[in-house]
Simulated scan of single mutants.
Amino acid sequence: MADVSAPRIYSCHNCRNHVARHEDIFSKNFQASHGRAFLFSHAMNIVEGPKENRNLITGLHVVADIFCKNCGMALGWKYEKAYEESQKYKEGKFILEKFKITKENF
Rank of each mutant, 00 (worst) to 15 (best):
D65S: 09
C68N: 06
K100E: 03
V47W: 08
E52P: 07
R21H: 15
F106A: 11
A2K: 12
A43R: 00
F26R: 00
C12G: 06
F26A: 09
R16M: 13
G35T: 04
H18E: 15
M1H: 12
D3E: 02
R21M: 15
F106S: 12
K93G: 00
K78P: 08
Y79H: 01
A64W: 00
N53L: 15
R16D: 14
C12K: 02
H13C: 07
F26P: 01
D24A: 07
V63C: 07
V62S: 05
A32I: 03
N55F: 11
L39G: 01
P50Q: 07
M1F: 09
R8F: 10
D3W: 02
E48A: 13
N45P: 07
V19C: 02
C68P: 07
H34V: 10
K69Y: 13
S5E: 07
F94N: 00
D24P: 04
I9P: 00
G59C: 05
K98M: 13
N105I: 04
Q87G: 04
E104T: 08
K98T: 12
I9T: 06
C68I: 06
K69L: 15
E104A: 06
A32R: 00
P50K: 04
F30W: 08
G92Q: 04
I57E: 10
I25T: 03
E104R: 03
V47E: 15
P7M: 12
